[in-house]
Design a protein around this nucleic acid. Structure first.
Lengths: 325, 325
DNA sequence: GCTTATTACGTCAATCGTAAATATC
DNA sequence: GATATTTACGATTGACGTAATAAGC
C-alpha cells in the first residue's frame, strides 16, 4: 500500500536492462551484452519489477519469456531507450564539434581579406558544421550579435554597448597603393600624408569602414577624405591603378591581399593612422562549441597576419576561447 | 580525447535535473523543486556537461541562462522526461490494477452460476479494467487458453494437456429437482439413483457438461443418460418442472441458483457422482495483475459456495495467485 | 552585505562481482 | 548432472548533505 509519487529510483539503466533481457530472452546473454554479471542484472530486473509492481518476465532456469505486462512495456521501453541514446549522442556530437552551426558577421574588408581562408580551413576540419556568414557594416554587425543572429562578429569598434564586449585582434595602418610604373614606385620608404596630395586619389565608397574612417579623420586633405573617384571593390581599383588612373589610400592589409598584392605599396606615416579590428560578442554568453573552434581558427589566421608591414597583432590572442578542448 | 561509447553514466536523473534548472533558471529553486541541495544539483549538472562535452548553462551568481547548446537540448530533454515518466506511470497503473484487461473463458454452467456475481463485484472494485468473458465447452475453453485468447478458464478437466495446468476449485454432486407439489417433495432425504427411475426426466441438451457427464456414466438408467426431453436453459426447465411435466437431474449447484432455487431438491447418492470444476491456465505463464485479482475474486466467491448442500470446496483455495498484493 | 553558485569532504545507499544455493530439464 | 536464475555478502562507486569558499550585484 505504498504510494510512489515519481520514479526517482528508476533510471535508464533499468530500461536498458529490461530491453536487453527481452531481446536476448536470457539473463545470461543479456548480461554479457551489458558487460555486467547475471546476478547484477537479475537484481536490476527485480528492482524494476518491484517498482512497477508488475512481473515483466516469466523465468525458469530453462525458459525466459515476457509476461503480458512485459510485452506491453516493450515498445515504450525500446522507444525510450532509443530516444535517450540518440539525444545523448546528438549532444555529444555537438560537443565533439561533429555537428552544429556557427554564424559570423563581419565588415566587408574582413569578409574579403580574412574569412575566406579561415572558412576554407574550417570546413575542412569540421565538414559537418554549417557555417553562416553575414556581411554588414559595423553597426549592423553589432545588431546581429545582440539579436542572436550570429555567434560573434568581426569589425571595428563602433558604439560601445552594455550588452557587448569587444576584444581587439589587430591594428591595421594605412598606405598608398600604386602601379609599378608609377613615380611613387621608385622607393619603398614610408610616406607622409602630405606627399601624396599631388596625386589623383582613387577612393572607396564611404560605406566601407576604412573609407569611412578616412572621411572622418581631421587633418587629411580633401581628396583623401572625399575622393572624386569612388569604387566599391578591389578588383576595380586594381584595374584602374594598373592603367595609371591614379593611386589609392587603403589599409595595409587590404593592399597586401589579392588582387592588390601585385601593386606597389608604401605605408603612410606622420601620423600613423590605425584602424582596430576585433571580435565582438555578447557579454555573459558563452560561445557554442562550433563557434568556439571557429574563433580559434580566426585567431590562428590572424596570428599569421603579423608578417605584413603595417599590420600589428594585438597580444591577447591566446586566452579568448571558452568551452572545452 | 576520450571516447565515451554509450551513455552508461548518464541517467534520467541528469535529464530531470537539466530540465528543472532550465525551467527555473536557477540552481537554488530547481534544487528545491527536486528536493536536493544546490551542491548536489550543481554537481549533477557539471557531470552532465562533462559527459556531453558541452556547456549547457551560462551561470554567474546573479544570472543563469541556457547556452545555445542548452536551448538545443531542451526540447529533447523535455520529451525524454515526459515519455519516461508517463511510461513508468502507465506500467505502475497496470501494477496497481488501475488499468489492464482480463479475459476469462468458462463453460456455460459456470458462466451462468458463478461469474455474474464475481464480475459484478470485480468491476465495482476495478472499474478501469476491461473484462472479457467467453462461454464455450470445456474443450474450446482449453483451446482459448492455449492460444492466449483468455487469461484463464473455468471448466471441468477434459483432456490433460502438457501446456496447461488444472487447479480444482470445487466438487459438485448431482441431485434431482422437482416442483413443490411433486410426490418427491414429501421428504428431503437423499435419494438413490434407482428411486427416480419411475419419474419422467427432463434433461439438458448434451452440449452442457453435466448432461455430457451423465450420458457417459455407466450404470445410470437410460432415461437419465439419454432423456427424451432435452432443453438447453434453466428457465425453460423451471417452467416445465413447475407445471409438473417431470423432474430433472442436474448438479447441486445449478439446482440451488436462480431460477431453480425455488424448486425442491434432493441429492442423489448411492453412488455419489461428482463433477469437478477448476481453473485452467497455461503452465509457466504467470497471470497478469488484472487476471490475478480476477482469480482472487473467483476464489472468494467459490469459498462461499460451500454453504450449498452437495457442493464441496477443495482446500487449495488459498495459495493460487501470483504477483503482488 | 546579501544572494547564488562552486568546491571540499564525510556519510550513506546503490550497484557490482564473487560465490553459494536453488531450480529446472 | 548440466545449465540458468536467485540469494548472500563484501567491496567499490556514486550521490547526497553540511559547511566552507568564491563570485556577482
Amino acid at each position: 500500500m505504498n504510494e510512489p509519487r515519481s520514479s526517482t529510483r528508476l533510471s535508464i539503466r533499468h530500461i536498458r536492462s529490461f530491453v536487453a533481457v527481452a531481446r536476448h530472452r536470457s539473463l545470461t546473454r543479456a548480461a554479457e551484452s551489458l558487460f555486467v554479471t547475471q546476478s547484477a542484472l537479475s537484481l536490476t530486473i527485480q528492482h524494476l519489477e518491484d517498482d512497477l509492481g508488475v512481473l515483466l518476465f516469466d523465468r525458469s532456469t530453462r525458459r525466459l519469456d515476457l509476461t503480458q505486462a512485459g510485452e506491453e512495456f516493450m515498445p515504450s521501453a525500446q522507444r525510450l531507450l532509443h530516444d535517450f541514446d540518440s539525444s545523448i549522442r546528438d549532444m555529444r556530437a555537438l560537443g565533439n564539434r561533429e555537428r552544429g552551426k556557427v554564424g559570423v558577421a563581419a565588415v566587408p574588408s574582413v569578409m574579403a581579406l580574412l574569412l575566406p581562408e579561415v572558412v576554407a580551413a574550417y570546413i575542412e576540419a569540421f565538414p559537418d558544421i554549417d557555417v553562416y556568414l553575414r556581411e554588414d557594416n559595423s553597426e549592423a554587425v553589432q545588431q546581429r550579435i545582440i539579436e542572436g543572429d550570429v555567434d560573434f562578429g568581426i569589425c571595428s569598434p563602433w558604439e560601445p554597448d552594455a550588452e557587448l564586449i569587444f576584444e581587439p585582434l589587430f591594428e591595421d595602418s594605412f598606405g598608398v597603393v600604386f602601379a609599378h610604373h608609377h613615380p611613387l614606385a621608385t622607393s619603398a620608404d614610408d610616406l607622409s600624408w602630405k606627399e601624396i596630395d599631388g596625386y589623383r586619389i582613387i577612393g572607396f565608397s564611404p560605406d566601407l569602414g576604412m573609407q569611412h574612417q578616412l572621411s572622418h579623420t581631421a587633418g587629411l586633405s580633401e581628396n583623401v577624405r572625399e575622393p572624386r573617384y569612388q569604387v566599391s571593390n578591389t578588383s576595380t581599383i586594381e584595374t584602374l591603378l594598373t592603367r595609371g588612373a591614379g593611386v589609392s589610400v587603403m589599409s595595409a592589409l587590404a593592399a597586401q591581399r589579392p588582387p592588390l598584392d601585385r601593386l606597389g605599396l608604401r605605408l603612410l606615416t606622420k601620423p600613423v593612422l590605425t584602424r582596430t579590428v576585433g571580435i565582438v560578442r555578447r557579454k555573459g554568453k558563452s560561445l557554442s562549441p562550433a563557434a568556439s573552434t571557429m574563433l580559434q581558427h580566426i585567431l590562428g589566421t590572424v596570428a599569421q597576419l603579423g608578417r605584413f608591414p603595417g599590420v600589428r597583432i594585438l597580444d591577447n590572442v591566446a586566452a579568448t576561447s571558452r568551452g572545452k578542448t
